[in-house]
Computed example of a mutant assay.
Amino acid sequence: MPELAEVEYFRRIWARAEGAHVINVSAQMDKRIFRAIEDSRFPEILIGSRFNRSERKGKQLCFHFGRDSWLGLHMGMTGRTLHCLDPEAKHKYAYLILDLEKGERLIFQDPRLFGKVYFSIGQGTPDWWSGIPEELTSDQFTLERMNAFLMRRSRSPIKSVLLMQEGFPGIGNWMADEILWRSRIAPSALAGSIAEGECRALYASIRTVCNDALRVIADGWNKPPDDWLFNHRWKDGGICPKTERVLVREKINGRTSCWSPDWQVYR
């Protein structure tokens, strides 16, 4: 599933067309990605509106059109956005298409249909957007807030807790592994057992990994450097960049974790 930086990459693709007006919309409303939309005026109500701005929170996107139209995208497992300058080009799995002036076209593809499209009309921010916690890179994400969340999940493995979107929006499997590797904490350590010093290291790693991911991946989907865990975690036999020993891959609460026992010594 796309994580924080990958979703930001997809936001920037559509953001290229900010300021343009919608001249036509096509949505295959029988597809399950539209299951959250009950407003029968969608998608035609977007025609004629101006694409004002785009935002991201965690793994979700929000696009503001006209005076009071809000379009949301959750990428699911295989969702992606496209910005096309050829209105005649054909794209598979293009279940939502916005045709803009000057031949621009915005496309949402989702081959496996695990994503979700949201739509609301109103002056106020819709619940499906305002209910998402603030960014982990924002001033609102403090050490105290993180510690309080860990204590509410004190008996759960820290790897599982980092994947909880209500506490750590945007974090997915690879980012959680990267965060724990950089903070030298084993993924099986219980959230409530982590000492003060390690909590500070964890907090610092969360912010650093988020910023590094946005800098490297969101800006053109570039390959991370080899001194990250990222390039070594995807298959058996990967080597830890710190110890040069084989990484361990194991299931923790049903999710595959990759870690370095000789480096992540806090357990």
Rank of each mutant, 00 (worst) to 15 (best):
R112L: 13
W14H: 06
I194Y: 06
I158H: 04
R245L: 14
F65T: 03
L106T: 01
V25I: 12
T256D: 07
T78E: 14
R105C: 04
K102G: 01
F63V: 01
L180E: 03
P157V: 08
A218W: 01
G48W: 09
R16M: 07
H91P: 01
R12Y: 00
P224F: 09
N222Q: 12
G238F: 10
R12F: 00
A27K: 13
R145I: 01
V25Y: 11
A189L: 12
P111W: 11
T137I: 10
N253Q: 12
E3C: 04
I179F: 07
L163S: 08
E244D: 11
K235D: 03
G103M: 08
R41S: 15
L71H: 10
L214H: 02
E244H: 15
I33V: 15
P126C: 12
E135A: 08
H21D: 03
S188H: 13
E166A: 05
R112K: 14
Q123H: 10
T81D: 02
A189W: 05
H91Q: 14
R80K: 14
I107M: 07
V246E: 13
F168Q: 04
G238D: 05
L214P: 00
T125K: 14
Q165A: 07
L136P: 00
H74T: 01
G170K: 05
V117R: 04
H91G: 08
W70N: 06
P87G: 11
P111T: 13
Y118L: 05
R80Y: 07
G170V: 00
N147Y: 05
T125N: 09
S130R: 15
G238E: 08
P169W: 09
G103V: 03
I47F: 08
R145Q: 07
K235Y: 03
I37W: 10
Y266S: 10
S40T: 11
S160C: 02
K92P: 00
P126D: 09
R255C: 02
E55W: 06
F42N: 07
A195D: 14
W174K: 02
S183G: 06
R16P: 00
Y118H: 14
S193F: 03
A213P: 00
R56K: 14
K159I: 01
P187T: 08
V25H: 11
I171N: 03
C210Y: 01
L150S: 10
M1A: 09
F149M: 09
K90W: 09
I45M: 11
I217W: 04
R16F: 01
I171W: 07
W234S: 06
R200Y: 03
N211F: 02
D262F: 12
G79L: 11
D139E: 15
P2H: 12
P126M: 13
L46I: 04
R145L: 13
R80C: 05
G237I: 03
R53S: 13
N231L: 11
G19C: 08
S156H: 07
I132N: 05
E18K: 11
H83T: 00
M75Y: 02
P224A: 12
D236Y: 07
M146V: 01
I217F: 02
H64M: 06
G197W: 09
I47V: 15
T125S: 13
M75H: 02
D212H: 04
F65R: 12
Y118G: 01
E44T: 06
